[in-house]
Design a protein around this nucleic acid. Structure first.
Ligand code: ZN
Length: 368
DNA sequence: CAAATTTGACCCGCG
DNA sequence: GCGCGGGTCAAATTT
């Protein structure tokens, strides 16, 4: 009872909290020593070791892409984990038929040009839950063996022609792994920013039915967000063409980059369950073991990094506008009769370190 | 050929 | 000590 009340309170608080505020805070991650890998490069601390990779050819089946079904794109969900109080998180779910969402949907249709999902105007991106979900799907569903891409009809003309593969968040990522988590119910993809030496990583997760999408950002970009000419162009075009205003007006959207209320309907805590300060040691240790490159400068000086989860991810450039590259993937489907899936190490050692000064209650989880 | 993904194997903290 | 769970690695593939 008490707990419920508490949650209710928190929920109400959340409703009042400006979405942007949350996101902004959430993006203020703590810098830390990094041990990242980008493409064939490995970055340890300030060092940069490049590891060349070979190439090969063949075709591999991947039936783990069911969740990319376009029909799932219709579901709108937003998950934002904010460490409001502490390294706890809050999950927000958007109302599917909220005016804003509807407007966005209409706006999309209105877009004659099949603008890449990544190229929508920023203010729209920031609240386009539906699109966000879409993007998630795409993000998690690279071309399948059937060479088919399950993109929404609105975005068929995909990013392949955009200057890069930036996600809505404005950054470029490289996938480096994918796993089934939570009893295999949810596929989770791991991405890291492709920017050299950038420590930021993010994990994207969606439920089987595609209703819940979560994005967890970890780390802090140490570089500016790459610009998106295409997006800017599309935005300006429309804006200058008067249609922009019309639409914005019609749907009561704020034409400026000001705040747009996110239709929140539910909130729940997400406990990490691993909020102990243990990463510092374990991380460097693990690295020492793992690093065959002989890096030992991994001073994993970690301080608790709150966790941020948001399906708005790609829709909120201000938060993560960096570039990422995929550099791995995990099996999603039941490895039929296949050997037990190997476990995966958990490194999300989050600590309960004090919150950042500036009242930075944010959300992020420590990055190792 | 290079860059990006896919994937099964690894690693490791934790219960 | 054992196994699970989750994050990464890195060779194999795909683009
Ligand atoms: Zn970055």
């Amino acid at each position: 009872m008490a707990v419920s009340w508490f949650f209710l309170k928190l929920f109400l608080f959340t409703l009042k909290t400006d979405y942007y505020q949350i996101m902004e805070k959430s993006m203020r991650w703590k810098p830390r020593t990094i041990v990242t890998y980008a493409g064939g490069s490995r970055v340890c601390g300030d060092q940069f070791t490049v590891v060349k990779k070979k190439c090969a050819r063949s075709s591999v089946e991947n039936e783990n892409r069911d969740f990319t079904n376009p029909k799932n794109a219709s579901s709108i969900s937003i998950a934002v984990v904010a460490n409001v109080i502490r390294p706890k998180a809050i999950r927000l779910k958007a109302v599917a038929n909220h005016p804003t969402v509807v407007a966005l949907k209409a706006y999309e249709e209105h877009q004659q040009i099949l603008v890449d999902a990544h190229s929508l105007p920023q203010e729209l991106n920031q609240v386009n839950c539906n699109q966000s979900t879409l993007n998630l799907h795409r993000s998690l569903s690279p071309s399948s063996n059937t060479k088919q891409r399950h993109y929404s009809s609105n975005y068929v003309n995909d990013s392949k022609k955009t200057e890069d593969k930036k996600s809505l968040d404005g950054y470029k990522w490289r996938k480096y792994g994918q796993k089934r988590v939570k009893k295999g119910e949810f596929p989770r993809a791991y991405y890291r920013c492709v920017h050299p030496a950038c420590p930021v990583k993010k994990t994207v997760e969606i439920s089987k039915d595609g209703e819940i999408a979560e994005i967890i950002y970890r780390g802090d970009h140490d570089h500016p967000k790459p610009s998106s000419k295409l997006r800017d162009k599309a935005f300006n075009l429309d804006r200058n063409g008067s249609t922009h205003e019309k639409w914005m007006q019609k749907f009561n959207l704020d034409g400026n980059d000001s705040h747009i209320d996110i239709p929140t309907v539910s909130a729940s805590f997400i406990t990490d369950g691993r909020e102990k300060a243990t990463e510092s040691v374990t991380m460097s240790q693990k690295r020492k073991n793992d690093d065959k490159l002989g890096d030992s400068t991994v001073a994993a000086k970690s301080t608790a990094i709150p966790k941020l989860m948001s399906s708005i991810d790609e829709s909120h450039e201000a938060n993560d506008g960096y570039s990422w590259q995929k550099y791995g993937k995990k099996p999603l489907a039941e490895p039929a009769a296949s050997p037990v899936l190997d476990g995966v190490r958990s490194c999300s050692a989050t600590s309960s370190a004090p919150l950042p000064p500036s009242g930075d209650v944010s959300l992020c989880r420590h990055l190792r």
